[in-house]
Design a protein around this nucleic acid. Structure first.
Length: 424
RNA sequence: GGAGAGGUGGCAGAGUGGUCGAAUGCGGCGGUCUCGAAAACCGUUAUCCUCGCAAGGGGAUCAUAGGUUCGAAUCCUAUCCUCUCCGCCA
């Protein structure tokens, strides 16, 4: 979330940022609540100061005389009642303030194009030539069914639409890609591998920003018998558990940046996206993903974003998949992001670019929600870290792209060299 | 699932109704001593909110949320978490 003090002092800038994100929030109400709360807080605290000082005296009097004067007790009783009334109002306002604060998105950085939807997305570089296939290209579904790699129908039977089942070489490919990617990030890029739970609690979802805005897109679970759904969630990305590892912690400056990578399954309802790019593996409810998460010092976090993108690109280059790097415009960025690059790979049969990675800088937005700080050695102050994450990469779509890109005229797949050791 | 114990500052650990943001020890930081270091000694050492140009003042925080009380780290209730034992189990 944003710093309330910052909003108080820069309401116009915040309003512009919210609009650029295509979001809306009742800023005026927020500022009004804030002002009212601080006024009430002042009155409550003055009464508390009085109560504290009287309490002190009372303790001494009682120690020396053994009993308390009735009039003091009577007065303090009313004081406490007044305090309770003030505090109830303050609490009520705090709730309202938090609710609005939690619904305000992060503001885009100044070099992010301001635009509606994805109109302002900008390709900043490309790697390789989108493959042209001279023979009649088969799409990944056709290839998969011929080679018996995966089945959407089987998944529909045992679970529902959008849950692929992989068989044989398809299943093997899934495992191979996960191992290959993690090895690359650990050995070449210096990340520490993490294996994290696929179920998280509500606080974690709020910490990274999936809640409240995206709650209806998440698979909610009940905590226990008779309890309401929404105490726990299936993770939509490893970003959630891995970033929340540091929730409410103070990090050492010397340990930064902290770089984690991890594989988890990801679960998304994809509510409202029916019929939109949903063919085969292009949009599914459960998929595998290797994620990278970084905790960094605020200065230099933009370079950390650049290197994060490079780390993700490295996977695509090793897999020999031509891609483009897209800087997202303000309207296409996620709720918590301040700047974001997508990596898109061309699928020559489906004839579409597929987003296989999204690398974001969240500045201190998530860190403030999660209270992740570090001690700045120079200022000796506790400051919020900056958090980043990026897919490295998202599997279902990578499988789609690999199949379509590496098919030969006989409908066989010749996988890239880097993957061979993992497939044999 | 059953029975019990417990959650206090960076850590260990005292504190069972008032003078407690909290003894003591360790660790950290600064200093004395030393050629330097160790040891010893002295000092210092939480966070957040709020008012203030500042100096500084005030408030909150002893797992969390309520309650009792003039007053709660301390008493009561609920929740969460940790540990021990038993049961079950891949």
């Amino acid at each position: 979330m944003l710093d309330l003090k910052f909003i108080r002092e820069n309401p116009d800038q915040v309003a512009r940022g919210i609009e650029a994100k295509g979001a809306s929030a009742d800023l005026q109400a927020l500022l009004d609540f804030d002002q009212e709360k601080r006024a009430l807080l002042k009155q409550s605290e003055e009464l508390k100061a009085r109560r504290n000082s009287v309490s002190d005296t009372v303790a001494r009097v009682k120690a020396s005389q053994g009993k308390l004067p009735d009039e003091i007790i009577t007065e303090m009783k009313t004081v406490s009642q007044k305090i309770a009334i003030f505090d109830a109002k303050v609490g009520d306002l705090s709730e309202k303030i938090d609710k609005i604060l939690l619904s305000i998105p992060n503001l885009p950085l100044s070099d992010v194009p301001v635009c509606k939807g994805n109109e302002g997305n900008k390709t900043v570089r490309t790697w390789g030539e989108p493959r042209k296939i001279s023979f009649k290209a088969k799409d990944h579904l056709e290839l998969a069914s011929q080679l018996g790699l995966f089945s959407m129908e089987k998944g529909s039977k045992i679970t529902g639409a959008g849950f692929p089942v992989y068989f044989g070489m398809g299943a093997r490919l899934e495992r191979a890609l996960i191992s290959f990617m993690i090895d690359l990030h650990v050995k070449k890029h210096g990340y520490t591998e993490v294996w994290a739970p696929a179920i998280v609690n509500r606080a974690s979802m709020r910490g990274t920003g999936q809640i409240p805005k995206m709650e209806e897109d998440m698979y909610a679970l009940a905590a226990g018998e008779g309890e309401e759904k929404g105490s726990y969630f299936l993770i939509p990305t490893a970003e959630v558990p891995i970033t929340n590892l540091m929730r409410d912690e103070t990090l050492e400056e010397k340990d930064l940046p902290i770089k984690y990578t991890g594989y988890t399954p990801c679960f998304r309802k994809e509510a409202g996206s029916y019929g939109k790019d949903t063919r085969g593996l292009s949009r599914v409810h459960q998929f595998d993903k290797v994620e990278m998460v970084k905790f960094v010092k605020p200065e230099g976090s933009l370079q950390e974003l650049e290197s994060l993108v490079k780390d993700a690109e490295d996977v695509l280059q090793a897999l020999e998949l031509p891609y483009r790097v897209v800087l997202l415009g303000s309207g296409d960025m996620s709720f918590a992001a301040a700047k974001c690059f997508d990596l898109e790979v061309w699928a020559p049969a489906t004839q579409k670019w597929f987003e296989v990675s999204s690398c974001s800088l969240f500045t201190d937005f998530q860190a403030r929600r999660m209270n992740i700080r570090y001690r700045n050695a120079a200022t000796k102050k506790l400051e919020f870290v900056h958090t980043l994450n990026g897919s490295g990469l998202a599997l279902a779509r990578i499988v789609l792209c690999l199949l379509e890109n590496f098919q030969d005229p006989n409908g066989q797949i010749v996988f890239p060299k880097a993957l061979q050791p993992y497939l044999n």
